[in-house]
Nucleic acid binder design. Structure first.
Lengths: 338, 338
DNA sequence: CCAGAGCAGTTATACGTAAAACTTCGACTG
DNA sequence: CAGTCGAAGTTTTACGTATAACTGCTCTGG
C-alpha cells in the first residue's frame, strides 16, 4: 500500500510480519516444518493475506528453472474434440499442480510473431496433436519434453506417443458395413497428411480387399463442411455404378456428405449409407443420426498429460492405445438391391 | 555446448563473441544504434545463431515487469465461435508483438489448481467473455487491465467493454418474424446469467409487446443440444395454442429445438419457424438450414484485443457496438393459418 | 562443565536479462 | 593545447524468489 501501485513482494510481507524475506518464502512454500515456529508462520500468513500478496511467477520461474506449465498444441479449434482433450489434460494437470495453456495452431496468423517463440524457458513440456505438427517447428518444441497425440510411433523420434486405436475403429466400421452387405465403398478422406488419417485409409483398404467383390475408391477433401460437400457431390455424381457406402474420415466430412446427398436427391440410408469418426454433437443433430466411431477425447487428454508427467519424471511412459467404439445409428442400413 | 545440457544464455553468447553480456543484450534487443559497431553486432548475431541462443522468458519478464502476453478467458470451448474470437485477437496481437493465451473456463476442474492463480505477474492483461465471468474471480483479473466481451457497460466497473450489437440482431429477428405474420412466440433462452442473453430477452419482449395481439413465452435451458431438446419438447407439447415461432438464444439451442420438433412430428418451417443466433457451421448442416443472426467472431476478437492494447497504452478505448446481420434461410416462413 | 544437537530464524547468493552509469580512447573545436 | 564530444564498449545493478549456508541460543547427556 505504501509503495504506490506496485504489487506487494515477499519482502513487503516480511517487513509487515517483522521477519526476513527468507522466512516468508519458507512459510508460504510449506517448507517450514522445524524451521519456523507455528506462531511466526501464522504472522506471516496473516500479513500475506492482508497485503493480498501473490508470488511473482516470473521470478519464481527464473529461480526454479521450471514453470509447472505445459503447452497443448492443437489444430485450429474447429471442433469440440480438442475442447475435450483440453479438459482431460487440464484435470490431470490440476491433480499434479500443473497448468495447461492452449496454443491453437493459428490460421492465417503466420509465423510473424509466435507467442511461444522463446517459450522453452517458460514451459516445462509440450503435448501436441499430430494434426498441428506444422506448428511444432515454430514452437521449437524440439528442445522440450514432448508427447505427441495420434502420431506415428516410429516416425516421431524420441517423443512419446499416445494414440487412439483408430485402426480398430476403422475395422469396426468396415466390418459393420461389409456385414450389412455393402461392396462398393467410397472413402471421403481428410486431405491432411497425418498418421491418424493414413491409418484410416490403410485399414479400410485392407478390410475391403479381403472381401471378394468389394472395392473402395478414395477422394480427399479439406476438413470443412463445404469442402466435403463439393468433393462428395462430384464423386457421387460421377458416371459408373454409384457407391452404396460412404466412409468419412470424420463427422464434419460426413455432414458435408449429407448435404451432397441431399442435393443429389439421394436418401440416407436407403440410397447411401454414411459413417463418420469422432461422435461430435453434430452427429446426433443431423437427420438421420450418424453412425460413427466414438473417440473419448477427455481420456485422450488425460493419457497425454499423464504421459508427459511421466516423461518429466525421467521415466518412459508405458504405451497402449486407447480403445474406441462404433456407435451404430440411423445413417447405415443394408444397401438397396438394384 | 561446454556447459552440459543447459540452454545457452546471453553470457555464453557474449563469451563466444568475445564481448560482454551487456553488448549481447544491446545487439539482440535492436537497441545498439550508435552503441556497438556494425562488425561487433555481426559477430554477436553470428554467435547467437551458432549456439542456438534463445532468451530466457522468465528472466526477461522479471526484468521488464511485462510479458507482452494477454489472457483470453472464454467459456468452456464448446463452439467454434470462440475459436473465431481467438483467431481475431491473436491476429491483432501478433501485429503488436503480443501473444495470446487461452483459458477455457474449466468444467469440473474446480478451483483446486488454477494455472493462472498468480498469473498477474506473468500477464499484461485479460480479455474475458462475460459468459466466463465466474472464472474471472479465480483468475484475479481485478488487478489487471481488463476488457470484457459482451458485458453490461454499466455493470462492469471500470473495465472496458466491447459488445456485439445483439440488441439490434434481436430486433431484426423480431421484425422478420412479425413481418411474416407470427404472433405466438416461444423464446428458448440460455439459462446463463449474462448481459448478452438478458438483452436478447428484453429486446424480443419489447418488440413483441408493441405488436397488438402478439405474445411471447420464455423458457430457459442449458446451452446444450440435449438440454434444449428436453426444454423445447415439454414446452411445445404443453396444452393450449402452440407457438408458431421459436426464437432461440443461439444455434445450439436451435438444433435442440429441431430435434424436439422432429420428435413431436412438427414440420419446419410449416408448423414451426425457428431462429438462432451465431451462424455456426451447424446452422447450415441441418435441414432446413437455419435462419439466424450472424455474429462476426473474428472481428469481435480483433476489437477486444485493440481495446486492451489501448488500455495498456493508458488511454480509454472508444466504444461502439459491432453490427450483426440476420441471415434468412429455410427455417422461417409465414405461419400456417389454422 | 562442556560438546553436541536441535530450534528458530537470518544472511547471502544465484537464476538470466535489460539498462543505467561508467570508462576509455581518439578526433575535433576554439 | 586544454577541453569536449561521440563511439564503442564494459561494469554494475535490479527485478523477486528459493534455498544453501550460517548464527545464536537453549537444552541435554556424560
Amino acid at each position: 500500500m505504501a509503495r504506490g501501485s506496485t504489487r506487494p513482494t515477499s519482502r513487503d510481507v516480511a517487513h509487515a510480519a517483522g521477519v526476513s524475506q527468507a522466512a516468508v518464502s519458507l512459510v508460504l512454500g510449506e517448507k517450514w516444518r522445524g524451521r519456523v515456529s507455528e506462531a511466526t508462520a501464522d504472522r506471516v500468513r496473516q500479513a500475506a493475506q492482508e497485503l493480498g500478496y501473490r508470488p511473482n511467477l516470473a521470478a519464481r520461474n527464473l529461480r526454479l528453472g521450471r514453470t509447472r506449465t505445459v503447452l497443448l498444441v492443437v489444430p485450429a479449434l474447429t471442433t469440440e474434440f480438442f475442447a475435450g482433450v483440453y479438459t482431460g489434460a487440464a484435470r490431470v494437470a490440476a491433480e499434479h499442480d500443473f497448468g495447461v495453456v492452449l496454443y491453437p495452431s493459428p490460421q492465417g496468423i503466420g509465423p510473424a510473431r509466435d507467442p511461444f517463440g522463446s517459450a522453452p524457458a517458460a514451459l516445462d513440456g509440450v503435448i501436441a496433436s499430430s494434426m498441428a505438427a506444422d506448428a511444432l517447428t515454430a514452437i521449437h518444441g524440439d528442445q522440450l519434453p514432448l508427447v505427441m497425440l495420434d502420431s506415428d510411433p516410429d516416425g516421431s523420434l524420441g517423443a512419446a506417443t499416445v494414440n487412439l486405436d483408430i485402426r480398430d475403429g476403422m475395422r469396426q466400421v468396415a466390418e459393420h458395413l461389409l456385414g450389412l452387405g455393402h461392396r462398393r465403398f467410397l472413402h471421403l478422406a481428410a486431405d491432411i497428411a497425418s498418421w491418424t488419417f493414413d491409418i484410416r485409409a490403410d485399414e479400410l483398404a485392407t478390410r475391403v480387399s479381403k472381401t471378394p467383390g468389394a472395392q473402395v475408391r478414395t477422394i480427399a477433401a479439406p476438413i470443412t463442411i463445404e469442402g466435403a460437400l463439393t468433393a462428395a457431390e462430384t464423386a457421387l455424381a460421377a458416371p459408373g455404378p454409384r457407391p452404396t457406402a460412404l466412409v468419412c474420415d470424420d463427422d464434419k466430412l460426413a455432414v458435408g456428405a449429407y448435404k451432397a446427398a441431399r442435393r443429389l436427391g439421394l436418401r440416407i440410408p436407403d440410397d447411401l449409407s454414411i459413417t463418420g469418426v469422432d461422435d461430435l454433437a453434430i452427429a446426433t443433430a443431423i437427420d438421420p443420426e450418424l453412425t460413427t466411431v466414438r473417440l473419448d477425447a477427455e481420456l485422450f487428454g488425460e493419457r497425454g498429460m499423464k504421459a508427459l508427467l511421466t516423461v518429466l519424471d525421467g521415466r518412459t511412459p508405458a504405451d497402449g492405445d486407447i480403445p474406441v467404439e462404433l456407435v451404430v445409428r440411423g445413417s447405415t442400413a443394408p444397401p438397396h438391391l438394384p
